[in-house]
Amino acid sequence: MPKFPSVEWFEAVGRRVADERERFKHLGYVDANVGVKVGTGGAAKGYLLEFAGYGVRRVREVADPAQLADFTIEGRLDDWKNMIENIRDHGEPDLGHTLNRLTMAGTPMQVVAKDQLQVDLFYRFNQSIQAFFNEAAGVTTEFSAS
């Protein structure tokens, strides 16, 4: 059972995306390196998801995803856990647990990027990025201790 967060977990989600190629093709390709940061301070874990074409080409653990990513989605482990559990419970997130909703001003998570054009990539590819995380519904997940 892959543990969140880990390279294995993102790869497991990525494999499900690959199995759903036609559906993801319909959504459009994604050209973006998406950073994921889980936790805060020294204990934070960082990942770089290299989206290319209709899926994720490579996942790696990195110290500071913001240095390498076009944009990074950041949140505490509990916020990520809430989101993933919500996706698991409903097969997809309810209105309160989409990435877009959770990263708005005054909400627990954030999208950070070097400049606004990179932030805008999160908007431009939003449906595909959300659909990627929705595949977490089919990955039995164990969570790291928060």
Partner: peptide, 27 residues
């Protein structure tokens, strides 16, 4: 972008999200 705050159902959520993607290209 505020679509999920504004949407009261899946229909509206999809409307706002898909429009957001288009609009971000124009901007």
């Amino acid at each position: 972008r505020g679509g999920e705050f504004l949407a009261k159902n899946k229909t509206e959520k999809e409307i706002y999200r898909l429009c957001m993607q288009d609009e971000a290209r124009h901007v």
